Computed example of a mutant assay.
Amino acid sequence: MKVAALVIGAGPAGLMAAEVLGQAGHAVLLAEAKPSPARKFLMAGKSGLNLTKSEDFDRFLAAFGPHADHLRPMLEACGPDEVRRWAEALGQPLFTGPTGRVFPQTMKASPLLRAWLTRLDGYGVTRRTRWRWQGWADGAAVFATPEGVQRVTAGVTVLALGGASWARLGSDGAWAEALRAAGVPLAPFRPANMGVRVEWSAHMAARFGMPVKGVAWQAGPARSRGEAVISDRGLEGGGIYAISAAVRDGAPLSVDLAPDTDAETLARRLAKPRGKMTAANFRRKQARLDPVKQALLMEFGQPLPEDPGQLARRIKDLPIRHAGPRPMDEAISTAGGIGFEALTPGLELIARPGTFVAGEMLDWEAPTGGYLLTACLATGAWAGRQAAACLGAGPV
């Protein structure tokens, strides 16, 4: 089979690449290993699809850390404002939450995906599911399909096969072997936006499923005011995910249980006479520690200092003993993969001209909160434009 453009992977990056190529008038074959497209996208949307983040562009870009310079041109071309306009053009009204996160009013991914696939159908994009890419042979992309082995020769190819987490939804990193065989250097996969494992004492079982609110998590220079949840597996949730890269890289994890009160003020409160109050009630009143915060203090802070100043410092900087990150397949995203040094500025593989890469296959990471999805869409659009230019249409 011969096609003008082949896109492998029907997640957000692949769908966006297919859209751009189809809009440019090219015949596109979109191949997906799973029975249906965008499974991870749909799963993420079950708790409210956070499309992007409404904030100053430089602040938005800074969330990508050391990868920001590489991603800048792509995010300038398809950043938060462009993502908003794109979703609204698909008939999805949006709203911005108090923290700047942008969601569809339906809080679901499925209506947007249906509209998106309808648009691709209108551009003539051909979709094939249960087509699992096996690599290349004699210049053709090889797929294992229900109808047997299929070989596709394409003028350009966009790879958008995802990272190495949530394997059951399609992101299993199995593509790495084929890329290595093609001479593409890869950075090892690492979990990103993941929880931490904690071996709780028995008394914490009563707290499983409870949120930890009104605290500040710290790991090295990274600090987060987000919430977390105590689970039987450890600590999970946005507050932990935001600093998880620093934890993964070896920074000690701690929590400030009273982030809105300085240590000196807290020490003065804790120095007041306790009277007949229990120690727990006294801490609740003077340090404003709810039962969940008190449970964390007892779990990680014993023996508690009797000196008010030392106790205040313990509350303000409570070390969290943990057993490292949760397994990579439980992570929301991954770092590692294809480094930008293996690519042209147009996301074309140096080792394989005519093949472009987008999404989480690239070695970048960012916190949750709209950054991940926006960058997947942006790199997909960028790869699609460059692939269209390679076919002679020029950037669209």
Rank of each mutant, 00 (worst) to 15 (best):
A63Y: 02
G336Q: 02
P188R: 11
A381N: 10
G337N: 07
A216R: 15
A246I: 01
S231Q: 10
A358C: 11
V229W: 08
V152Y: 02
R274L: 06
F41N: 02
R207M: 15
A33D: 03
L304N: 11
V196Q: 01
R180H: 11
R85P: 06
H322S: 13
R59Q: 12
L71G: 06
T129N: 13
D317H: 15
R190A: 15
T334L: 10
G339V: 11
A174P: 00
D256N: 15
P104F: 00
T129S: 13
A216L: 07
S165E: 07
T344W: 02
P221S: 14
L349G: 07
A182Q: 14
G45N: 11
R268Y: 10
D307H: 13
L297P: 01
L42W: 02
G100E: 06
G139H: 06
H26S: 13
M328H: 02
S110L: 15
G9W: 00
T145V: 05
L161I: 01
K40T: 14
G170K: 04
V184N: 09
G11C: 08
D290V: 01
A24M: 08
G173Y: 05
S110N: 09
A295W: 05
C78N: 12
G394H: 04
L21F: 12
D172C: 12
K108S: 12
A13L: 05
G183H: 00
L377G: 07
A381H: 13
R84V: 10
L120V: 13
L169Y: 12
G48P: 13
A335K: 12
E365I: 00
E76Y: 03
E365A: 01
S224N: 06
S231G: 15
V7T: 07
A388W: 02
M210P: 04
A27H: 14
L318S: 07
I332D: 00
A375M: 02
V247S: 04
D290P: 01
G91L: 05
A140M: 10
T334E: 08
R326T: 12
G11D: 06
L257E: 08
P303I: 13
P37M: 02
W166M: 03
D329Q: 13
P325Y: 02
K40P: 15
A10N: 04
M43P: 05
F143L: 11
G309L: 14
D363A: 05
G25Y: 00
E32Y: 06
G195W: 00
P98A: 14
E236F: 01
G394I: 06
G384W: 10
A24W: 01
L377D: 09
G48D: 09
T118C: 09
A18Q: 09
Q134S: 13
P98T: 13
P191R: 01
L179K: 07
I332R: 00
A154I: 09
A174E: 12
M210N: 13
D121I: 01
F356I: 03
R151T: 15
G339E: 11
A13C: 09
R39K: 15
T99N: 10
P12W: 06
R85M: 08
W116A: 10
A4R: 15
D363S: 07
A63K: 04
R180P: 02
W166D: 04
A228R: 01
